[in-house]
């Protein structure tokens, strides 16, 4: 009797499975892709990296900034914590930013100003604001938790030698600077290759192009170069990542307001 029920359920599931695959909506498929990408990024523990930011104006003026980033993966159900330390330009040297991202709700952010030895709380509704005068907004820089968007799969499309999923995502936060983003993600390793950002008036605002991915701990793909072009202003910003180091022994204690004040 038991065996019959089992086999029946197996049979049923075999029958239903293809049906449910067919019936998967574009929204479900988009979410499934985002979840898979998130799953593949899980378990990194912590990492440190160096980032060079190259700002270019429409006239071709260039300016460089150097930063160091330390990130600690959030425990189950919690967002990541990250610490960003500014090394250049010299007048912002020693300034540091601490972010506690949350899967739902606003992130907590604090900025440390070394001249005054003061930690200032940043009202996180400022997330659509520019990060250090660059074309990256605060919300582009933070951890991309799955819950922060709704999704919709659009199509498959070749991207270079690979095939990409193309899907849209809609920020769930009413204070986001965007109505939607179109993401190109390769099907082989679930790496982001390109994102189009649409502003509140539904017009194309920016395009992010990600190249030079590198593999770490044989599991985790990290971007090497991220270029953000603002179509409305003609300005652009390049982020060049280097010196990725994983499992450096960071802990919760390295991501408190106290540790923000002594970050070097």
């Amino acid at each position: 009797m038991l065996r019959r029920t089992l086999s029946l359920s197996v049979l049923l599931s075999l029958l239903i499975a293809p049906v449910s695959l067919l019936a998967e909506t574009a929204e479900e498929k988009g979410l499934a892709i985002a979840r898979e990408a998130d799953r593949r990024g899980q378990g990194f523990g912590d990492f440190e990296a160096t980032m060079k930011m190259v700002l270019s104006s429409r006239r071709g003026d260039r300016s460089e900034r150097e930063l160091r980033v330390r990130t600690l993966e959030g425990k189950e159900g919690e967002g990541d914590k990250s610490l960003t330390i500014f090394d250049t330009p010299a007048d912002v040297r020693g300034t540091a930013l601490l972010t506690w991202s949350h899967p739902t709700g606003d992130d907590d952010q604090w900025l440390y100003l070394p001249a005054l030895k003061r930690v200032k709380t940043i009202a996180s509704r400022n997330q659509s604001g520019s990060f250090m005068g660059s074309e990256f907004a605060f919300e582009d820089m933070r951890a991309q938790e799955v819950e922060k968007y709704r999704y919709k799969y659009l199509r498959d499309e070749p991207c270079g030698e690979l095939t990409c999923f193309v899907y849209e995502r809609y920020p769930q936060d009413q204070y986001s600077g965007y109505t939607r983003q179109v993401v190109w993600m390769d099907q082989a390793e679930y790496r982001v290759h390109k994102i189009d950002y649409f502003d509140r008036k539904q017009s194309l605002l920016k395009t992010l192009t990600v190249t030079d991915h590198s593999l770490h701990l044989e599991r985790f793909w990290q971007p090497g170069k991220m270029e953000m072009v603002n179509h409305q202003t003609g300005k652009s910003t390049e982020l060049l990542w280097s010196d990725y180091r994983f499992n450096t022994g960071l802990s919760e204690a390295d991501f408190t307001q106290n540790s923000l004040m002594r970050a070097r």
Partner: peptide, 14 residues
């Protein structure tokens, strides 16, 4: 209190 208007008049200014 402190309140920040981000992207004043559609510009980059806060």
């Amino acid at each position: 209190f402190e309140y920040t208007q981000v992207g004043l008049f559609g510009s980059d200014m806060d």
